Amino acid sequence: MKLSDGVEQAIHSVTMLSGLSADGVLSAAALAEFHGVSPSYLLKHLQALSGAGIVQTLPGPKGGYRLARPPEKVTLLDIVLAVEGAGPAFRCNEIRRRGPNPLPAHLLTKPCGINAAMLRAEQAYRAELRRVSIADILADVGAMDDGTIVARGCAFLDIHERKSGSKA
């Protein structure tokens, strides 16, 4: 299974937004600059995160993005589904019914075994993503950080964080 670059960008952006003060926001341009990615591509994913209720959008000259809920309430699955959509990664097209010698109808009464196996694998994958929150990711990073990662993020936020004047 291959996820789009947007998933990585979205997870990193949500992680960065978790470092904002209560009334702080970051512009999409600032997030794109920090991560060295295309602003227009990132904006598409920020809009998807907003639509999913993961981030909040504040319009205006002091506007930008901030988390809509606490980091412990945002899972990796929430982000993946917002960016990639909720549909299954594997889509069975019942090719057993095609070709010059399709299976007879009486052998097609049960679901395809390949489809069933793929769906079980996806359920396990989604369960693992559902188990990991942004707070968990932050804790893991904090445990291995010698201060460099936090200092990098704080220095950037000191320059680019906007105060929206309204608290979430």
Rank of each mutant, 00 (worst) to 15 (best):
M1Q: 11
S4K: 04
D5I: 03
V7G: 01
E8V: 15
E8F: 02
Q9S: 09
Q9C: 06
A10F: 05
I11G: 12
I11E: 08
I11S: 06
I11N: 10
H12N: 14
H12G: 11
S13W: 04
S13L: 03
V14L: 12
T15M: 15
S18H: 02
S18N: 09
S18V: 00
G19F: 04
S21F: 00
S21P: 02
A22Q: 07
D23S: 15
D23E: 12
G24L: 11
G24P: 07
V25Q: 06
S27W: 08
S27T: 14
A29C: 04
A29N: 13
L31W: 02
A32P: 00
A32Q: 13
A32N: 14
E33K: 13
F34V: 11
P39K: 15
S40C: 06
S40F: 13
L42G: 01
K44D: 12
K44T: 14
H45I: 03
L46C: 05
L46G: 12
L46H: 07
A48F: 01
L49N: 04
S50T: 10
G51D: 13
A52M: 02
G53V: 01
G53Q: 12
V55R: 08
T57F: 00
L58T: 15
P59T: 05
P59M: 01
P61R: 10
P61N: 07
G63D: 07
G64D: 04
G64R: 02
L67M: 08
E72S: 13
K73I: 06
T75K: 05
L77G: 11
D78S: 04
D78W: 11
D78P: 09
L81G: 04
A82Q: 01
V83R: 04
V83F: 01
V83H: 02
G85V: 09
A86F: 02
A86P: 15
G87T: 07
P88F: 01
P88S: 09
A89F: 11
A89R: 15
R91P: 02
R91L: 03
C92L: 14
N93D: 14
N93M: 12
N93G: 04
E94I: 00
E94D: 07
E94W: 01
E94N: 06
I95W: 07
R98E: 07
G99A: 06
G99M: 08
P100D: 13
N101K: 01
N101E: 09
P102W: 03
A105S: 08
H106K: 00
H106Y: 08
H106A: 01
T109A: 02
K110V: 00
P111H: 03
P111N: 08
P111W: 04
C112F: 05
N115T: 02
Y125A: 03
E128Q: 15
R130N: 10
R131H: 07
V132D: 03
I134V: 13
I134G: 04
I137H: 03
A139G: 05
D140T: 06
G142Y: 04
D145K: 10
G147A: 05
V150R: 05
V150K: 03
V150T: 11
R152D: 15
R152M: 14
R152T: 15
R152I: 08
C154V: 07
C154Y: 09
C154I: 12
A155E: 14
F156T: 09
L157W: 02
I159G: 01
E161L: 06
E161F: 06
K167R: 12
A168H: 09
A168Y: 13
